[in-house]
Computed example of a mutant assay.
Amino acid sequence: MIRHLVLFKLNEGVERDDPQVVAGAEAFRALGDRIPELRFWECAWNISDRPIAYDFAINSAVEDTAALQRYLEHPAHQAGVALWREFATWVMADYEF
Rank of each mutant, 00 (worst) to 15 (best):
A79E: 14
Y71R: 02
W84I: 00
L31K: 08
E12H: 15
R70V: 01
N59E: 12
R85A: 15
F28V: 15
V91F: 08
P51C: 04
L31I: 07
Q69T: 09
A25L: 13
G24R: 08
D33A: 13
W84Y: 09
F97I: 01
A67H: 03
N59Q: 05
D17R: 09
F8W: 14
L7F: 15
A27T: 15
Q69C: 00
S48G: 09
I47G: 10
V91R: 05
R70D: 12
W90P: 00
P51F: 06
R85H: 12
V6N: 05
L68C: 03
H74S: 04
T65W: 09
D18M: 07
H77E: 14
Q20G: 02
D18H: 08
V62F: 03
V22D: 08
P36R: 01
A79M: 11
D64V: 05
V62A: 00
S48A: 10
W84L: 09
M92D: 00
E37L: 06
Y95N: 03
N11S: 13
G24K: 06
C43W: 13
V21P: 01
H4E: 00
D64K: 04
F87S: 02
S48T: 09
G32S: 02
M1F: 06
G13C: 05
Q78K: 11
R29L: 15
E42G: 11
W84F: 10
F28E: 05
F8R: 01
I52M: 12
G24Q: 05
P75K: 06
I47F: 15
I58Y: 00
E15M: 04
E26N: 11
G13D: 09
R3C: 10
E12D: 15
A67V: 01
L5K: 07
D18R: 04
V6D: 01
L83H: 00
C43G: 09
F40T: 04
A93K: 00
L5E: 10
D94E: 07
A53E: 15
M92C: 06
I2C: 00
N59P: 05
A93C: 01
P75V: 10
L10P: 03
A23P: 09
R70T: 01
D94G: 01
R16T: 03
E42D: 14
F28A: 11
F56W: 14
F56K: 03
